[in-house]
């Protein structure tokens, strides 16, 4: 247990081989190795067990582990594929692969849909959407009256809920995103295109450890 020294080939719990992860994702083996350095850093930031806990995820995102954020919570839950409360290395790489510039748009659309499907009912419901907008406003410095929020949600449903049943299903979501491609902006992280160049120190370290 504990943080893994870069001088020993001893991996974090749930470690998966970079060549296997590379074959299943948009990353090369070198990029997976660079992500492993990032993973080790995040997963040992608070609880030194080589697994990313929610507090560590939020610390990495916000530099503050107490910063409550509905979407950081949701993203963490989606990364935690096994639903055991922590993110293992393989989960980290597979989930980040969806955010790769080269990942299929369909994967990005599906991930964003699951993110917004707060209660995991298979649809984005009207009150769910309003709840998300209100939570965001509460967590940020933005202020909008309840009337304005209601109008925005109403307008969004007029445009997105083609069947008019008060719920946005995956097909409706796909059509809505096609008309509003900016909704996928956050689903692509340019950093991932060549993470080994963006973080050369990671590559130096991984060459020592993993070759």
């Amino acid at each position: 247990m504990g943080c893994i020294s870069s001088k020993h080939i001893k991996h974090t719990p749930g470690y998966e081989e970079p060549n296997i992860l590379a074959s299943e994702t948009c990353f090369t083996v070198n990029e997976v190795q660079a992500l492993y350095e990032l993973f080790k850093k995040i997963s040992c930031s608070i609880i030194k067990d080589g697994l990313i806990h929610k507090e560590e995820f939020q610390l990495a995102l916000f530099r503050n582990s107490n910063n409550k954020n509905l979407f950081a919570d949701r993203v963490f839950d989606l990364f935690d594929i096994k639903r055991n409360g922590v993110i293992e290395f393989g989960e980290f790489v597979r989930s980040l692969s969806v955010f790769h510039p080269g990942a299929p748009t369909a994967d990005k659309i599906a991930f964003a849909f699951r993110l917004y499907d707060l209660r995991q009912t298979g649809c984005i419901e009207r009150d769910e959407l309003k709840e998300m907008v209100l939570a965001l406003l509460k967590e940020s410095d933005l202020t909008l009256s309840d009337d304005v929020v209601e109008q925005i949600v109403e307008k969004t449903f007029r445009e997105a809920d083609a069947k008019g049943d008060g719920r946005i299903d995956l097909d409706e979501w796909k059509d809505f995103v096609a008309k509003n491609p900016s909704l996928l902006k956050n689903m692509t992280l340019p950093y991932l295109k060549d993470i080994t160049l963006a973080f050369p120190s990671f590559v130096t370290n991984t060459e020592e450890v993993d070759v």
């Binding site: 995040i42 530099r63 993203v75 998300m132 969004t156």
Partner: peptide, 25 residues
């Protein structure tokens, strides 16, 4: 407003994962 509810939500920092890749100060 021309923005829809999802535009507003996507402005949330929690939906922007770029912080994961930034070195701490």
């Amino acid at each position: 407003s021309q923005m829809n509810a999802f535009d507003i939500i996507s402005m949330s920092t929690g939906f922007d994962l770029s912080g994961l890749f930034e070195e701490p100060d």
